[in-house]
C-alpha cells in the first residue's frame, strides 16, 4: 500500500478533530447554533476516532516482510 492508507487516515483524523474542536469552540462562544454543533460532532467524532486508530499503526510501505517459512 506504500503508506497511502496512513496518509489518507492521518488527514481524515486531522480533519475530524479540527472540525469537532472548531464546532465546540464556536458553540462555546455562541457563534454556532446547538444543532449544527451536534451534527458536526456526530459526523466528525466517529470519523476522527476510527481514522486515528487506522492511522496509528498503518502500513507505511517501508516494512521488511520476514520470510516465515511457507
Amino acid at each position: 500500500m506504500t503508506g497511502r492508507i496512513k496518509r489518507v487516515a492521518g488527514r481524515l483524523a486531522a480533519c475530524g478533530i479540527v472540525a469537532c474542536g472548531a464546532a465546540a469552540a464556536l458553540y462555546l462562544y455562541g457563534m454556532l447554533p446547538f444543532w449544527a454543533y451536534a451534527a458536526v460532532t456526530v459526523l466528525g467524532f466517529p470519523a476522527a476516532v476510527v481514522a486515528l486508530f487506522l492511522w496509528w499503526m498503518a502500513d507505511e510501505g517501508k516494512e521488511d516482510i520476514p520470510f516465515i517459512g511457507y
Binding site: 451536534a38 460532532t41 466517529p46 470519523a47 476510527v50
Partner: peptide
C-alpha cells in the same frame, strides 16, 4: 458500519 455505530451513540449521548 463502525462509523455508524460510534455515530449513533454519540447522537444518543447528545
Amino acid at each position: 458500519i463502525v462509523l455508524v455505530a460510534v455515530g449513533i451513540w454519540t447522537a444518543a449521548f447528545f
